[in-house]
Each structure stands twice: as C-alpha cells, then as structure tokens.
Design a protein around this nucleic acid. Structure first.
Length: 491
RNA sequence: CGGGAGGUAGUUCAGCCCGGUAGAAUACCUGGUUUGGGACCAGGGGGUCGCAGGUUCGAAUCCUGUCCUCCCGACCA
C-alpha cells in the first residue's frame, strides 16, 4: 500500500486528507459528511478536551448535559438565531419504522408523525435558555457558569475531515450574568482561555479579535474569535466567544430580581471550540512525511523501537527499555515500547513519523555496548546519540524544546504573513501571491465587506483586540477609516 | 445545490471504448530466512464488480434510474 503523503506543493487538499487518513486520525464513514474518529485521533481529542476542561473549571465553570433534540418552536424564538441556522438543520419528523408492505426493508411509519418536529441541535442556546428560565429567579442564582461537551449537527453542503463535518464534537459554554459588564468580562476571559490553550498546548499562535457584523454569530451582540494561519496561507477560525447581550434572555423570558427588587433580563455569553481544532493542528505543523503533533497533547510522546538479532539481544534490550520507560513514566511522559516482531525497524520509523510522535528512541546491540540510545525528534528530523545516564530528563527537556520550537516556527511563519496594504492592487497581489493576513483599512460597511469578498474571496477575519488606531482610507472605496482590519482567505 | 471525476479483493487501482471463466500490486494467513530507514523466498485464503431496473443466448463492460464518495464553486465552525 502506498503510504506516501502528497506533497504540499502538489495539492494542498490532498496533502491534508492524506495526513488525516494515513496519520490514523479519522476515516470517512458510511454517512454523508460524517467521519469516524479513530482511536488515535480520539486520544488526541481527549488530551485537548482534558486540558480545556481543566481550564474551564479553573475559571469557575461546571459541566452539565442538555438534550440532543430541540423542539422546532424553540429555535425560532430568537429571530437572528433561527435565520442563521435554519438552512443547515437536520429534522426529526417521525418516531417509528415499520416493515415495508411492498418489500423486505423497513419504511417510516406515516402514522408515527411527530406533532412538533425536533431539530437535531446545531448549537444549544435555545434548549439551554429554555432551561435557564426555570433556574434563575434572583441575583443570587447568578452567575450561572455551565459548559457542556457534546456533539452537534450542521448539515453542510460540502464537508472536509475535521474542518467541516456534518456532525462534530465540541464544547459549548453558556453563562448567565447580572450585568452586561460581567458578561463581557466573561466573553473576554473565555477568549483568552482559548488563545492560551491554542498557543501553549497546540503550539498554534492565534490572533485575538472581534468579528465584523456580517461574520457575527446568529443572535450575538459581539463575537470574539481566535484566528490561526495555516501553511497554505489561509486563515482558520479556531474558536469563538460570544457576548449575547439580553437577546436570548428576552426570547426565552429569563428575568431575575436584582438587589433593588426589580425584574431584569439576564446577560448571556456562549463560547465553543470543536474538533476543528484537530484540523488546525494538522494544517499548521505537519510536513510531507506526515503529522507533527505538539508534545503537550500528542497521544504518544515517545516511541521506543528495538533493533535486534535473536532472542538473547532482544532480552537485553527489553531489560534496558524497561528502565527507560519506568523513568519516563515517573516523569509523566506518555511512552510506548513497540517490540512488535512483525514489523521491521524501518517500517516503524516511517509509521510513527506519519503519526507525528514527537520523539523516537531506537535502541540496538550497538547502543547497549556504548550505553547510549539513538534519539530522533519529529519536528526537525534530527537524530543524535544520547547517553542512558539521565535519559529521562533529557527526553523531558527535548519534549519542551519541540513544543516551543513548533510554536516559534508557526509564529515566525504567521508573523511574516501579516502584510500591511494600502491600495487595492497591492491587496489583490498579496492575497494571490503570498497569502496570509492582510492588514488593510476598511470603511466599516457591510456593503464594502461584501464587495471585497465577491472580488477576492477574502473575508474580514477579525478586528484585532489590541489594534492601533490609525487614520486611513478604505482601499476599495477610499472612504475614511480609523483602523486596519485583518482580511484573509479562510477555511 | 451547480460543474468535474469516481464507486471492481482489507487498501490503491487495471479491466469497460470494442459484452464471452474476476485481474495486479499491496495488505492478510502458513512456514522459513531476516531485522540500524517502509525485507525476502515458497505456499495459501479473500470480490453477489455501489444498488435497482432494462437490452442480450450471455453484462463489471451497453442503456435508464438511484445512492454514495472525492475535487472545484455557492453556504458555513
């Protein structure tokens, strides 16, 4: 079987698909637009999930679970919300099958039509706010800080492994607050949690920003986001945090009695990241030899491959490897000893590179004699001979090194692909020839934004949070502008 | 939902134009030799050719319909 990865230069889509499939993360499934996340991919997701979950809990949140099905009437209570999601909803209309009177199979039983259709949640704001209505009476019930880990379904026209699937796994936080200030602070805090996670765990530098009105979440007052840059120069929205104002409180009539004994609508936020992050990870760090996973979230951090002739050598190597793995495990390092005799060393080397394992240790008779092992790092492909003395500490240091190297490399690439542009000609040239983020003046209107999108496929990714104010002119309309915004072609 | 390509062994694909016993590589199983970058030899198992109709003595091959997948658009995290 061909295990070669399509080169990035040849075809970026194929390169990406190869990485996901041959790296063992996921597979296509029998269901349109849905994918199977394989054990290796799921282990990666679990590591990401656990790290995020801890950060949520450290900021005072708790987990709960709400139903998969949403009554159709709930979805339509918030006008902008239903309009945003209506086109991509899966709908349950019946609750029973029966034997096909005309043949061997089964058919939907027309007798079993639901009185009210159920929507498979595309997101859970509505069902959650319908519940919050019963949970919130007084300012003493606030803030309500709840997260749920769940699957959602959005019936997209065109899907891509991890980046856009019909069903995906995510977490969605839904909080309720007594004041707008507090809700905005929560929105910003969670954006920062996401940014920190992306940068420290995924080694993925991100731009923190606010969406323009047309890119805003359906039903939000403000949408904050983190935007990452992929190796092909396209941007990827990696996480969002929404300030919902009182929109959902009003739609679901969620009021509380404040300290002055007055009824008031509560203030809301919601925030989420999904398995899309795995797609971001793949596109940001991998190379033509396979995946490159950051050590902090890699399912396997170290793999040990023995090289031997005969049982006697194998036994000696086994004993030495036992010492090494014990020492590594003591330091909390995820290590696997692959002494499967069916595959030869060269095959294993290639296989673990494909899977992006950060560090590989090879140990053979030659090494035993010299009291060393061969250590290879996935990010740079460098190999070195390392003394067994203090090997575990050395590996730990190396993992940290790889983590920061990946981040620095991605950041250097990202920073060199932020281009300031003042004219339309330049704008198109940079988009077509260089890619990345283009910092340009925009007159602030949705019409201009739309016109730019039509002409170039580039969208406003965000207005950076730490943006400097600077007078200028819109590159297309020449109308005045107070600041630059970030444009890019995006996934 | 438009345009393109495709669905044949676990996988990647050939065979189709021009109808006539189902093929290759690889993976898998058995035995042996191997093992420092995807080993080799010998033997073996495995496919209602996406599905449903039609044409025909005969269909993987021709016709019609249908489902699914990938790529490019539009839509979106």
């Amino acid at each position: 079987m061909s295990k070669e990865i399509t080169s990035r230069e040849q075809d970026y889509s194929q390169w990406y698909n190869d990485l996901v499939l041959k790296g063992g993360l996921a597979d296509y499934s029998a269901v349109r637009g849905c994918m199977v996340i394989k054990p290796y991919g799921f282990a990666l997701w679990e590591n990401m999930r656990d790290a995020l979950d801890k950060m949520f809990k450290d900021t005072g949140h708790v987990n709960a679970y709400f139903p998969l099905f949403i009554p159709k009437s709930f979805l339509s209570k918030e006008a902008a919300h239903v309009e945003g999601f209506a086109k991509e909803c899966a709908v349950v209309t019946h609750y029973r099958l029966k034997n096909d009177p005309n043949g061997g199979g089964v058919v939907v039983d027309p007798e079993a039509k639901l009185e009210e259709e159920l929507i498979v949640r595309p997101t859970s704001e509505t069902i959650i706010w319908n519940t919050y209505k019963d949970w919130i009476q007084s300012y003493r019930d606030l803030p309500l800080l709840i997260n749920q880990w769940a699957n959602v379904v959005r019936w997209e026209m065109r899907t891509r492994l991890f980046l856009r699937t019909a069903e995906f796994l995510w977490q969605e936080g839904h909080t309720a607050h007594a004041t707008a200030e507090e809700a905005v602070a929560e929105t910003e805090q969670m954006l920062e949690v996401y940014a920190t996670f992306a940068e420290e765990f995924m080694a993925l530098p991100v731009i923190r920003g606010v969406k323009s009105e047309s890119e805003r979440f359906a039903g939000a007052v403000d949408t904050y986001c983190i935007e990452a840059l992929m190796q092909d120069g396209k941007a990827l929205q990696a996480g969002t945090s929404h300030f919902l104002g009182q929109n959902f409180a009003k739609a679901f009539d969620v009021k509380f009695l404040n300290k002055e004994n007055k009824q008031e609508f509560v203030w809301a936020t919601s925030w989420g990241v999904s398995t899309r992050l795995i797609g971001a990870l793949v596109m940001a760090h991998s190379d033509d030899d396979g995946l490159v996973l950051p050590p902090r979230i890699a399912p396997l951090q170290v793999v040990i491959v023995p090289i031997y002739k005969g049982d006697e050598q194998k036994a000696q190597i086994d004993a030495k490897v036992k010492e090494i793995t014990d020492a590594l495990k003591t330091l909390g390092i995820r290590v696997k000893y692959d002494d499967n005799d069916n595959a030869r060393p060269g095959w294993k080397f290639a296989e673990y590179e494909l899977k992006g394992v950060p560090v590989r240790i090879a140990i053979g008779a030659r090494d035993l004699q010299n009291n060393v092992v061969e250590v290879a790092r996935r990010d740079t492909k460098e190999k070195s001979s390392v003394s067994l003395e203090g090997i575990a500490q050395h590996i730990q240091g190396l993992l940290n090194d790889i983590q920061s190297n990946l981040y620095n490399k991605a950041k250097a690439y990202r920073d060199s692909h932020i281009t300031k542009v003042d004219s339309w000609e330049e704008f198109e040239k940079v988009l077509n020839e260089k890619g990345g983020f283009v910092a340009a003046h925009w007159d602030g209107t949705a019409e201009t934004e739309e016109a730019i999108k039509d002409k170039t496929k580039a969208t406003i990714r965000c207005i950076p949070l730490n943006n400097e104010h600077e007078d200028g002119k819109d590159m297309l309309t020449r109308k005045p502008s107070k600041q630059r915004v970030f444009f890019a072609r995006a996934y």
